[in-house]
Simulated assay, not measured.
Amino acid sequence: MDEIQNPFHRLNEQLTAARNLSGTAATIDVWASVFKCDASNSALLVNHFSALLDLVSEARAAAERFIPGDKTRFLAPLDRIDKLLKSQHLARPWAQFKPYLDDGTMVALDFGVYAMSQYYPGASAEGSEQIRDFVQKLDVLLEECLTSDLSAELKSLFIKHLESLRAALMKFRVEGMSGLEDAMDAIIGSIHRNSGPINAEAESGKVIIQKFFDVLGKVNDMISGYQTAAQIAAPAVTALLLPLLN
């Protein structure tokens, strides 16, 4: 969870490293240096090239899905990188292929890095930190729930909801808001359907339920703060749920 999920940023880092290497070097040696592996390790090089192609595809999918308006300027450098990776000859000098990474391509990648930080969930350090913090809190709550005095019925219910929200948060940074919105809606609907058993629960069990409601409210606040996000579930999730604990 620590890594910031910005595919343009990761592409920019690797391609900047390749661009800074001498054109007189063999292309295979350039990439071995970028990938930090031995040029004689063919299997490892193949894996790294496959991962780099996947990263280009990830950046393309993210740009098409999350960046509003005309996406041409963000997709153009990805097309050029694809051509580089698919046309290069590893035994030849890097100077023959280095021009694919010209100033225009690198500047366009920089624009992509910035656009992702604005529109792509979890692409900023702040967003990544928030998501990691929520997942850690949910992990703690899951442990507390497992050892709590909640009734078997509610224990099973809240374990399911804790796991569902955790999974949705893990996917949020790469899949966007829809999955998390669906998870939140399903959880809140389920909680209201089970309001009777929740109200009847002993006060000691309601402490964990209160903590879960607090996390739900804070997740809602985080999502509504994204520029491309609409307010989800309700204007104030906690306000909807707290009456169940009275």
Rank of each mutant, 00 (worst) to 15 (best):
M106T: 02
V107L: 09
L109A: 01
L109Q: 00
L109Y: 01
F111T: 06
G112K: 00
V113S: 02
V113L: 06
A115F: 03
M116G: 15
M116D: 09
Q118N: 11
P121K: 03
P121N: 06
G122S: 04
S124G: 09
S124R: 08
A125W: 04
G127P: 03
S128Q: 11
S128W: 00
E129G: 07
E129P: 00
E129K: 14
E129V: 08
I131V: 15
I131L: 08
R132H: 11
R132D: 12
R132I: 09
V135Y: 01
Q136W: 12
Q136N: 15
L138I: 15
D139M: 09
D139P: 05
D139V: 11
E144F: 09
C145W: 00
C145M: 11
L146I: 12
L146P: 04
T147K: 09
S148W: 02
D149W: 08
L150K: 00
L154G: 03
L154Y: 04
L157K: 02
L157D: 10
L157T: 01
I159V: 15
I159M: 13
L162D: 02
L162K: 06
E163I: 11
S164H: 07
R166V: 03
L169W: 01
L169I: 05
M170D: 14
K171Y: 06
R173Q: 13
R173L: 07
R173F: 04
V174N: 12
G176Q: 05
M177W: 10
S178N: 10
S178M: 12
S178F: 09
G179V: 03
G179L: 05
G179K: 02
G179P: 03
L180K: 04
L180M: 05
E181K: 11
E181A: 08
D182G: 13
D185R: 12
D185V: 15
I187Q: 00
I188W: 00
S190N: 12
S190C: 10
I191T: 08
H192Q: 14
R193E: 14
N194T: 12
S195L: 04
S195K: 14
G196L: 15
P197F: 04
I198L: 04
N199D: 07
A200I: 01
A200R: 12
E201T: 08
A202F: 12
A202N: 11
E203W: 06
S204C: 10
S204H: 10
K206G: 02
I208L: 15
Q210G: 09
F212W: 01
F213V: 02
F213K: 03
F213P: 00
K218C: 10
V219H: 00
N220A: 14
D221T: 15
D221E: 15
I223R: 05
S224Q: 09
S224M: 06
G225C: 04
G225I: 02
Q227P: 02
T228W: 06
